[in-house]
Amino acid sequence: MMNFWAEHFRRSHPEDPSLSLQETSERCRSDDTVHAKLVVENVSKVFVTKRGNTEALVGISLVVQPAEFVCLVGRSGSGKSTLLNLIAGLEKPGQGRVLADGKPVTGPGADRMMMFQEPALFPWLDVIGNVLFGLKLKSGLTRTERREVAEFYLRSVGLEKFVHSNIHELSGGMKQRVALARALAPNPKVLLMDEPFAALDALTREQFYDDIQRIWREYKKTIVLVTHNVREAACLGERVLVFSKHPGRIAHEFIVGLQRPRDINSVAVANYATVITRALKGALDPELRGKPLGADEVAALTA
């Protein structure tokens, strides 16, 4: 097993030429499934309820490259959260399969950490206790190493002064920061985020947008973020996938090539958001379906 600290060091020094394959494969074509971090292959999921069957997802395919930031947007009930749960391994697909690093996902794994809309922190543990929870389930770390890693990530989310605070003493934004540190601590390659900012106030949320972009760049995480906030998706995602409802399908795909760090209030982000909103409402030309839409198309559509 690779030494934890060596790994951290390399991650915080991206200019180091000895970096792994991950760095070079970042710019691979998005349909390259050999080096892909996540592959979703023709996945369908039906929920059986008393009132009948609901097709949550139908024939979804998706490839996420290492260190890519993908946002899934859609109305509630379009199956985007279901897809995230399938990738997390919390649910099993009815048909098709999900691969992480080329291996089929059979359950939750420490390589894929998840953040929820609620912080889901454990009230019987203090802040660092929560961050240590996942670390304790990772083998090969000594007690001191675990503490160092936990403190490292708490610093990284700006909570170094609250290491021993109780959860109920924190504000909503701080709780979500602890949840982020907790998800980062076991050093997963993939972060899965299910509307993590939806319950936060606007200012706290904007602060988060900066931090999440920094963390994504610094630690080279592959991030899949589910949201119904179109602007958020345009601001954060390299790619934005728009889900349609009944049954859940990927209707449109946007490539957001804007420079980072992006500001949620910038005109460029707003332009993308306008077009993505139209896509959400189903108001885009059906011929554009399935085609990756980039800056040129967005400029043409907003003109």
Binding site: A88, G89, L90, G107, P108, G109, A110, R112, M113, M114, F116, E118, A120, F122, F133, G134, L137, K138, R182, P186, L192
Partner: peptide, 10 residues
């Protein structure tokens, strides 16, 4: 949600 969070952490 506690159980889901715990499960994702292994």
């Amino acid at each position: 949600i506690y159980l889901r969070a715990a499960r994702t952490m292994g």
